[in-house]
Design a protein around this nucleic acid. Sequence first.
DNA 1: GGTAATCCTGTACCCGGGTACAGGATGCAA
DNA 2: TTGCATCCTGTACCCGGGTACAGGATTACC
Lengths: 150, 150
Amino acid sequence: MTRTGGWLRTGEVAEAADVSAQTLRYYHRRGLLREPRRSNGGHRLYPPETVTVLRVIKAAQRLGFTLDEVAGLVEAGGHRHGGPDRGLRARAVAKLAEVEQRIADLQTIRETLLQAVDAGCDDLVVCAGSPCCPLPFAEPATAGPRALRP
Amino acid sequence: MTRTGGWLRTGEVAEAADVSAQTLRYYHRRGLLREPRRSNGGHRLYPPETVTVLRVIKAAQRLGFTLDEVAGLVEAGGHRHGGPDRGLRARAVAKLAEVEQRIADLQTIRETLLQAVDAGCDDLVVCAGSPCCPLPFAEPATAGPRALRP
DNA sequence: GGTAATCCTGTACCCGGGTACAGGATGCAA
DNA sequence: TTGCATCCTGTACCCGGGTACAGGATTACC
């Protein structure tokens, strides 16, 4: 344990939350963490709850929320009930729809890849010329799925 | 049609393939397109097949290949049969596995979000403290899915 | 009080897939 | 030949989520 009466220094928080010290600073810049109190010399001194907050951030990220969204979630936790569409519930429901759309896109991609492998396509430029190839060469830009990176 | 005897200028290729002229230059830099012949004044003059190549590139991107991978695919089309693992087939199979892994990750995320909504979680920091919450706060860093952005 | 470990700030860089802009040079038609 | 559209190169910037490094200042331990 630390000797500073329950306060944790940057490195201790970082290690406890399995995050680098630079990432901590980065989260401050992004507004995900409030600036904690400082020592006389200017070193940050965190309350132990910060470790929990960091675990929450990482959990939310794993659920597909961006850091901006996470900042909103953490903030939303504070002052309760700013109206509907403001709680975690509402945001989770919205994110769920997003994730499901993404899954659907990837399933379309999967089907197409399967068809290409099945059809024995082995040269895209040749395929593009032959009308029997299942690959979507002339897709309208607005239609298709967004590949692996959304 | 153009008056330059079948050759297309940058803007014409770009429009025909529904790509910006900057993107064309970018693809040259990335090695996706060979540098075409030039006019006396240094303007690029493309053969009409280039439009097909661009459609191929876009199709491959929609299938989840990165530009580096697409460069490999286009090159692989040229000199046939450099060995196994070198054709489109092999690469498509590998990509298929990648896409399926990604779908599995997203389905895990989907389940977790559903559970959170179901359980009525409405404040992450509170949830992190209560043992009845289904959210994965203490996940080993090596385990979980990679959110929406891989 | 010496010395090592940690911390501070600021700035720059990484990935992928482009987009935007400045400042000149060409191409083409009237 | 003049005027405007198009093209050229080079450089910088965007997103998201960080990482890396330089050059000082502070803290912890002996």
